[in-house]
Amino acid sequence: MTCGADVPFARTARLLEMAGGAAVSATTVMNSPRRAGEAVAEMERSAARDLYRDGAPPEADSVAEEVLVEADGTYVRMRDGSTAEVKAVVAYAGKEREGGRARRVAPVRLGCVGEAPGDFWGQAVAQAGRRFDLARVRRVHLGTDGEAQYVNGISRLRFPDAAGHIDPFHVARAVASCAVDRASGGAALADAVRSLGPEACADLIDDMLEDGTAREGAEAVAACLRRHAAEIGGGPSMGTMEAEQQHMYKARMGSFPCAWSAAGADAMARVRSWVYSGFALPKRAREGSRSRRRAARRDERLAGFVAPRPGTRLKSEGKGWEYPVSASLAGMGSDVRFRSS
């Protein structure tokens, strides 16, 4: 099941045959992670409903007082030539050094396609609750690149101490793009946002707009600096999710010549995030092994058995209808038949 989540479906089918297994088609291989992803999606949506509707958090496997959360999106190509966004989040209990590199501690992930931002964040919090006991989390840091659907996710992180942080690299790139002369003016704005702060940098952009030395759209950047001044600067080092997106999703969903359906992309993103969070995929039952066509035919047959059928009225002699009292004596002894006659 997990092989098709790492390797293209046709190649997986060939590898299985080379390993001595039964020959299967690429479609059969594709259906395995698809159904696993659908099962995972239902579990994640159910956990979000239980948490936000009933107040029942998931059962966690660890505890952390401080949790770091990163969220961002990446795009994959669809069958019709368009692109779809893989919304992704990773939550972890800080970082530790390993072999000269920083490694996330106890990461838990959620990746999906087609979910509205509100539903995405509800499932993300519930997914984090599978790893960290939500009742014992005191501080949460949310790192984003400033995109509204992710930076506004801080409103769903209802913890005693929750703070949002916009990545400094994306802030510097945005303000530098406001200057007509990016070599000098852009560099000066990037230095200003670091040394003077976002509100002072927004005032400089306003001055440049009046002087005609700012690009079109610079006013939107200035407004964003003022609106998210509290999220710009400070906070722990969290990264920007680019490496996470590349290794977790693009490595399978974008590196090969892939063309996804919406359902297939959602299932693949959920399977990969689930497996690489350390969770076991739900086991397939006999009911789930049937194809959709076979399942539909089975449901139709069962419906025929339980469907109400029109009754028949027995004919009788005399006045009105009488309850039938006749019965067959075939197979009984002669004495029984004699006494009943």
Rank of each mutant, 00 (worst) to 15 (best):
F9R: 03
I232M: 07
H165G: 01
E317T: 02
G55C: 08
P257K: 00
M43G: 11
A71C: 09
T2I: 12
E59M: 04
V63Y: 09
R194C: 03
A327W: 14
S273E: 05
A106H: 08
R182N: 00
E147M: 06
H247L: 15
Q246C: 06
R227K: 15
S25R: 02
R49W: 06
W121N: 04
T74C: 11
G217V: 04
A303D: 11
A230T: 13
L110Y: 00
S32E: 11
A163T: 08
M238Y: 07
R194L: 09
M332P: 04
V171M: 01
Q246T: 03
R139Y: 01
A214E: 02
K95H: 12
D266H: 11
P8R: 04
M268I: 01
P33L: 06
D80G: 12
F305T: 11
D299H: 13
G320P: 02
V69E: 07
G153M: 06
E66L: 05
C3M: 15
G73K: 00
S328T: 13
A41E: 08
S195W: 10
E65G: 10
A5M: 03
A176R: 14
E96Y: 14
V76I: 15
A23F: 05
D266V: 04
F169W: 12
G20F: 03
R194S: 07
V193Q: 01
E242L: 02
A187I: 00
L329G: 00
A88I: 05
A192D: 15
L51C: 09
L68P: 00
E317I: 03
P58K: 01
A23H: 08
A200K: 10
R138C: 06
Q127M: 15
H228I: 08
L189G: 08
R103G: 00
G320T: 10
S184D: 14
R104H: 04
V24L: 15
E42A: 14
V336D: 09
V180P: 02
S316E: 14
G122D: 07
M43T: 14
R252A: 02
A163I: 02
E322R: 15
R156Q: 09
A93V: 05
A135Y: 06
R130H: 13
E216Q: 12
A187W: 05
E231L: 10
A22S: 07
L51R: 10
P57Q: 10
A48E: 09
A174T: 04
V137T: 13
R227M: 09
D161W: 06
R53M: 11
A183W: 05
H170I: 00
E242D: 00
V171K: 03
E231P: 04
H165R: 14
V29Q: 05
R284L: 15
C112A: 15
L196E: 15
V271H: 04
G233D: 11
R138L: 05
D335H: 08
G114A: 12
V336E: 12
V24M: 12
A71V: 02
R194Q: 09
E115P: 00
F305M: 13
G143K: 05
E147H: 15
G254K: 14
I154F: 05
A262F: 13
Q246E: 11
S273H: 08
D167N: 13
V108K: 04
R101N: 12
R215F: 08
R182L: 04
S255T: 10
A48L: 08
S334R: 14
M268T: 03
A262K: 14
D145L: 07
C224W: 13
H141M: 10
W260T: 07
V271Y: 05
A148S: 05
A10I: 08
A60V: 01
